[in-house]
Amino acid sequence: MNGPTVLLDPTAELAPVARALSARPPSLDGKRVGILDISKARGNVFLDRVDELLAGRGITVMRYRKPTFTRPAPAVLVQQIAAEVDLVVEGLAD
């Protein structure tokens, strides 16, 4: 077994190696929020409550569901979410 693949940085090294997370929106005002249920048992109970809380603040919520939690979301679903909402809430694991 060879060691890990090491690449040499082709850039001027002005940014850290670890990639930054996407910037957080300062507020949810006027944003459309997606909720993605990964189809884990009873995940819907938690996500329904998140939905209620967001809707109570006047935020548009769209619901999505993966066919199974065992596989990555199908590309079509990812594209649909990306086209329809500004940000997405996704629960991972149990």
Partner: peptide
Amino acid sequence: FASRAVEIGAAEDPEEACFA
């Protein structure tokens, strides 16, 4: 080498890592 070493994930495809 003077340049920074970037270690990529064991399951990461090297070409895709460059894109990413």
